[in-house]
Amino acid sequence: MVWPFNKPAPIIVEQKSLGDPTAEELMLFGAISSTTSIGNAEALSVPAVSAAVRIISEAAASLDLKLKRKVGDAEQDVADHPGLNLLTGQANGWTSGFELIRDLVAGALTKDSGALCWVTKVNGEPRELIIYRDSIVTVDEDDKTGEPKYRIAGQFASSKNIMRVRGPFTKCPLSMARSAIATASAMESYANSLWSNGARPGGTIKVPGKLGADGVKTMLAGWKAAFGGKANAGKTAVLYEGASYEQMSLTSVDGQFNESRTFQILEIARAFRVSPAMLYELTRATWNNAESQSKDFVTYTLSPWLKVLEGAFNRVLLTDEERVDHRFAFDLDDTSQADLVSRATAYSSLITSRVYSPNELRAWDGYAPYEGGNEYANPAIDVARPGNDNQSQEAAVAA
C-alpha cells in the first residue's frame, strides 16, 4: 500500500511484555550476558542443576557395595578386603566411603576431566583414597589413543594409583548444558529483580513542564524512598505538580514467564537424564507414571554410572590376580523395594512357586534365617510338612 505524500504513514507500535522477556531484553536489564557464560559454581546455584547432581550422586552412594568372588558357577560375597573396607567404611581420616562415592559421581557430572581420586598403596594394597583439589591432580590424554597421563603436584603418577570416573563425552553434562543452565540462571535473576522491587517493574513519571537534571534526580530519589522495595509494596502513590505515573506492561501472571522457566527445567532434566518429577517439576507427574519413571531412572541413568564406578574400583583396587575372579558390584535390590503390601505379595508368590526359599527372602531384608526356612516348599499345600515330595503335593492338590 502506498500512502499519499501529504499524509504521514501510521506508526505501528508493537506491545511488549515483561512477563515473557526475550534474550535481548534479558541482556538489556542486566539479567544475562551476551556470551551466556556461566561458571560451575554459579551453575550449581541453579536449583534444578544441584537437584539433578545430588539425586544421581547420592543415589549411587546410598546403595550397598559388595565384593563378589566367583566360585564355580556361583558367586560368593567377600567379607573382608582392604579396598572394600575403604569404600564402605572410611576412605581416609576425614572422608567416609559414602562421601567419596558421592563426590566421585558429582565430579564426573560437573567436570570435563571427570573425578580423579588418588589411591595410596603399601605393597600393592590400597590404604587410603583421597580426592585432591583440581589443581593438584591433573590428566592429559594422548592425541591418538586417548590414554590418560596423570600428574600429582606436577610429578608423573602411575595410572595404578589414580581412580578416574567420567562420562562418555569429552565434556561433562554440566558443560554440555551450559547455555540452557545460563538461561535458567538469568531468568531466576530476572524474577528475583522483578519481585524484590515489590513486583513493580520500572514505569514512567510524566510531568507537564520541565524539571531539569536536578529535578529529575530529586523526584526519582523521593519515589524510590517512598514506594520502592518489598516493604513499601502496595502503598498509595501521591504525585504533585501535575505529574502522572504510567506503569509498564507486566504479564508474568498469565503464565508465559513461568512456562519459560519450566521449559528450562525440562532442558536441564534432559541433559542429566533424570525425569522432571525428580527435579520436583510435577506438572505431568501422576501416580501411574511415577513408578515407571523411577524404574527408568535406575535403568537408564543410575545403572550406567554404577558400571563406570565398578570398573574404576576393579581397575585400581584389585590386583591383576584378583581381577580374574573378583569384582565390585552395587546391590540394586534396594531400588526395587515397593510398599509393604506389594513386597509381601511378591514374596509369597516367590515362595509358593519355589523360586526362593523363605530364608533367602529374609536375607534380602536383613533378617536372620530360621530353622526349616531353607526348604523350597509350597506352604499353601501342606503347612505341617514343607518338605513334601512332588507326589504327595499333587495328591494334596487332587484332594
Rank of each mutant, 00 (worst) to 15 (best):
residue 242 G to R: 11
residue 285 A to H: 05
residue 384 A to Q: 13
residue 119 V to F: 02
residue 18 L to D: 00
residue 5 F to Q: 07
residue 319 T to I: 04
residue 377 A to Q: 07
residue 169 F to L: 13
residue 331 D to N: 15
residue 87 L to I: 10
residue 297 F to P: 02
residue 79 A to F: 05
residue 60 A to Y: 06
residue 1 M to A: 12
residue 216 V to S: 04
residue 200 R to H: 12
residue 37 S to G: 02
residue 302 L to G: 02
residue 32 I to K: 03
residue 6 N to Q: 13
residue 192 N to A: 14
residue 280 Y to D: 15
residue 69 R to S: 09
residue 120 T to W: 01
residue 190 Y to S: 02
residue 335 T to Y: 05
residue 387 G to L: 02
residue 395 A to R: 15
residue 140 D to I: 12
residue 206 K to N: 14
residue 339 D to L: 10
residue 267 E to S: 10
residue 370 Y to F: 14
residue 330 F to G: 07
residue 108 A to K: 04
residue 283 T to I: 12
residue 303 S to K: 13
residue 19 G to K: 00
residue 135 S to G: 08
residue 347 Y to C: 11
residue 193 S to R: 12
residue 196 S to A: 05
residue 295 K to G: 00
residue 87 L to V: 11
residue 178 R to W: 08
residue 192 N to L: 12
residue 178 R to P: 02
residue 317 L to K: 02
residue 365 D to L: 08
residue 22 T to C: 03
residue 153 A to N: 14
residue 348 S to Q: 14
residue 68 K to I: 08
residue 308 V to G: 01
residue 8 P to M: 09
residue 248 M to T: 12
residue 229 G to W: 09
residue 153 A to F: 07
residue 72 G to H: 10
residue 215 G to M: 06
residue 346 A to F: 01
residue 138 T to Y: 00
residue 242 G to K: 08
residue 332 L to C: 13
residue 11 I to D: 08
residue 247 Q to D: 04
residue 94 W to C: 00
residue 55 I to D: 04
residue 335 T to C: 11
residue 251 T to A: 08
residue 44 L to T: 03
residue 392 S to M: 11
residue 174 L to H: 01
residue 179 S to R: 15
residue 194 L to T: 04
residue 164 R to F: 00
residue 224 K to H: 10
residue 229 G to V: 07
residue 149 K to E: 09
residue 304 P to R: 06
residue 104 L to C: 15
residue 110 T to L: 14
residue 355 V to T: 15
residue 49 V to T: 11
residue 369 P to K: 13
residue 325 D to P: 00
residue 270 R to V: 04
residue 98 F to C: 06
residue 289 N to H: 09
residue 80 D to V: 15
residue 396 A to G: 09
residue 321 E to M: 07
residue 219 M to T: 07
residue 163 M to I: 12
residue 133 R to D: 07
residue 353 S to I: 08
residue 384 A to Y: 11
residue 86 L to D: 04
residue 308 V to Y: 05
residue 6 N to D: 13
residue 4 P to Q: 10
residue 167 G to P: 06
residue 362 R to F: 00
residue 274 V to W: 06
residue 296 D to K: 06
residue 392 S to W: 13
residue 193 S to Q: 14
residue 390 N to L: 13
residue 368 A to N: 08
residue 288 N to S: 15
residue 283 T to D: 09
residue 252 S to V: 07
residue 130 I to C: 03
residue 40 N to D: 04
residue 60 A to F: 05
residue 93 G to D: 12
residue 297 F to W: 14
residue 234 G to L: 00
residue 38 I to Q: 02
residue 368 A to H: 02
residue 348 S to M: 04
residue 125 E to Y: 03
residue 250 L to P: 01
residue 303 S to G: 03
residue 196 S to H: 07
residue 257 F to A: 10
residue 388 N to L: 14
residue 37 S to E: 11
residue 378 N to R: 01
residue 204 T to Y: 09
residue 193 S to M: 11
residue 270 R to L: 04
residue 130 I to D: 09
residue 126 P to E: 07
residue 17 S to W: 04
residue 287 W to H: 10
residue 238 V to W: 02
residue 295 K to A: 03
residue 5 F to R: 01
residue 127 R to L: 02
residue 66 K to I: 09
residue 392 S to A: 11
